[in-house]
């Protein structure tokens, strides 16, 4: 289920004297079955952008298309409800939104709201909990007894329980340990193989380089780039300074070597690419 932004402008308080423009002339697309990473410094407009995808915010001008639904300044709430069913939103630190008495009840809440019967909602919740590797022994426990990493997975299961076609994840790996982070990246890859449209907001360029098919760079409310990670992360180093954007760690390391007169044709983006380059140089010259 593809998403298209066509010349979207967004302002808070549009039409009032307090109008505050946030997004400017956004044209972007998020293809089905691909992972699109949205990056940019804090305050660049990333969160405002994604809140347009399920109509939490409406464009002041322009149009957002989600499959065959059009969202404009005048779209009615009833139409938005139909779109929201198709979009699973995982906000930052989603564990703060857990509320039910048991893990299972918490994950069932979404499907029940979208009109599932209790038994269908229970089935859906169980599938989602299994997908997130939440052990069955925890299903009847209070979510508040669990560790931070477990709570995070339960909150994500809640967003996935209604089997949405579009999944938006805002910094899903923040605060998790290395193993928890890798599990989340694996989940994103799994969602992709299920042909979902995945949108990932992240400050971690290593994650972006690892799993994104394309990257949208936001800067001061505008789209500064929309391209594949290999292309993006090979831009001139000055561009990253201007955008206040990091390179993946391997790229940062390569830049430091470059300052010591090392030369690279392509900037390595993973540890393997980086060390392959170092190792090959070691054998030719060493």
């Amino acid at each position: 289920m593809a998403i298209n932004f066509q010349q979207v402008n967004f302002s808070y308080g549009a039409g009032t004297s307090l109008e505050q423009p946030i997004l400017f002339d956004i044209t972007a697309n998020f293809p089905t079955g691909q992972v699109t990473a949205v990056v940019g410094q804090t305050g660049s407009g990333k969160s405002t952008l994604i809140q347009h995808i399920n109509g939490l915010l409406l464009p002041t001008e322009g149009q957002v298309t989600v499959a065959d639904h059009h969202i404009t300044a005048n779209t009615k709430e009833k139409e938005l409800m139909r779109i929201r069913e198709k979009v699973g939103m995982v906000f930052q630190f989603p564990e703060n939104q857990l509320f039910a008495n048991t893990v299972l009840e918490d994950v069932m809440y979404g499907p029940i709201n979208f009109g599932y019967s209790r038994s269908d909602a229970k089935n859906a919740a169980e599938i989602a909990l299994k997908r997130l590797n939440v052990s069955e022994t925890l299903w009847e426990k209070s979510p508040f007894e669990l560790s931070g990493g477990q709570m995070r997975r339960i909150a994500i299961a809640g967003a996935l329980a209604s089997n949405p076609d579009i999944v938006v994840l805002d910094e899903p790996a923040a605060g998790l340990d290395p193993r928890g982070q890798q599990e989340l990246l694996n989940l994103v890859i799994e969602l992709k193989t299920l042909n979902k449209t995945v949108i990932l907001i992240s400050h971690q360029m290593d994650h972006v380089a690892q799993i994104a098919d394309q990257v949208i760079v936001m800067h001061e409310g505008k789209v500064a780039a929309q391209e594949a990670p290999e292309q993006l992360f090979n831009r001139d180093i000055q561009w990253f300074t201007d955008m206040k954007l990091d390179l993946p760690k391997a790229g940062q390391f390569a830049e430091k070597l470059r300052q010591q007169d090392w030369q690279f044709e392509q900037r390595p983006l993973t540890i393997k690419a980086l060390t392959d380059l170092i190792n090959s140089r070691g054998t030719t010259h060493g």
């Binding site: 340990d177 290395p178 193993r179 760690k249 390391f253 540890i271 393997k272 980086l274 060390t275 170092i278 190792n279 070691g282 054998t283 060493g286």
Partner: peptide, 16 residues
């Protein structure tokens, strides 16, 4: 369940 600092991960992949 932990990693190394980035420089440590690099060394782990080096031949020399």
């Amino acid at each position: 369940g932990l990693g190394l600092p980035f420089s440590g991960e690099v060394v782990a992949h080096l031949n020399q």
